[in-house]
Nucleic acid binder design. Sequence first.
DNA 1: AACAGTAATTAGAATTATTCCAATTACAAG
DNA 2: CTTGTAATTGGAATAATTCTAATTACTGTT
Lengths: 158, 158
Amino acid sequence: MASKHSHALPRAAKELLDDALARHGLRGTRHRDLIFGSLLARRDHPTAEEVFVRVKAMAPTISLATVYNCLETLVQCGLVRAVNHERDATRYCPNLSEHAHFHDRRTGRIYDVDLPEDVVERLKELLPKGYEADSLELNFHGRSAMEKGRAEKATAST
Amino acid sequence: MASKHSHALPRAAKELLDDALARHGLRGTRHRDLIFGSLLARRDHPTAEEVFVRVKAMAPTISLATVYNCLETLVQCGLVRAVNHERDATRYCPNLSEHAHFHDRRTGRIYDVDLPEDVVERLKELLPKGYEADSLELNFHGRSAMEKGRAEKATAST
DNA sequence: AACAGTAATTAGAATTATTCCAATTACAAG
DNA sequence: CTTGTAATTGGAATAATTCTAATTACTGTT
Ligand SMILES: [Mn+2]
Ligand SMILES: [Mn+2]
Ligand SMILES: [Zn+2]
Ligand SMILES: [Zn+2]
């Protein structure tokens, strides 16, 4: 059976987390570790509820409110992105590189799509004078091929 | 004072609407007319609630459920786009040309940004093999200049 | 170690946007 | 005028998220 540390944060991630929290005057806690770790361990853009059930394996008494709190904290610290699609539950993504999302209509799964910096710049040039975008969000909708073995993401990066 | 027809649909729009409804086996009704008309009359991406209050001026007994129903019908018929931003209330847009949205953080207002077909094609090329997007959604977030007189949209098109 | 001050966590209530439901009303065709 | 179907309605129900008012856990001091 899996040890208590099967989802422990890799040293680098742990440092990233503690640093970001410190910079924001926040404490490193077991729950924040676990939740960030669970996002890194399985990058399938889970909802808060899904994170809740995953993390309960290691911290059976954690509350859903705490999961929401921690996820919001991670987003505030810039370690995690909140991903929305229509009015569905918000999903969470620890991929820090600039990327778009592909939403598979058939499966509901979300895949990361690398978004080169120059493309982002090109897109911002579409804006009329007087409109300054500090960020943009790009979502594709469609079907992915998905043979027998399904990959979890289109690209792998952090 | 404004006549009962101050927001009557222009003939062209009326035809567009009745056509689309017919093609979907749906009836043309006063409420659908009014709601589509109100979207065309003021293209500021209103929420269902906002449409509700606007349309009550001409149909004081209309219900919010009907507004939701009609908006959904218009979306299904391809006459209107639903626009989402984070978890905010869905907004509705009758601009049928391919376009992106600019969300002004300061005012909360949403502006249309023309999205040339070739840019759309270029973006779809970012997808790895096996990923077929039938649509994409592009949102900018930032600040618009906004001098004293505020324009309602960055571009004007239907 | 006890204390004080603050931050994190918690269970459950509250909120919000939206959808559902069951009952009425409006049409359209025969 | 019937009869069948679609549209509308008010109110209840839902779902995700946020809020609240404790409790608990830390972090530094005495
Ligand atoms: Mn271990
Ligand atoms: Mn008239
Ligand atoms: Zn992602
Ligand atoms: Zn628009």
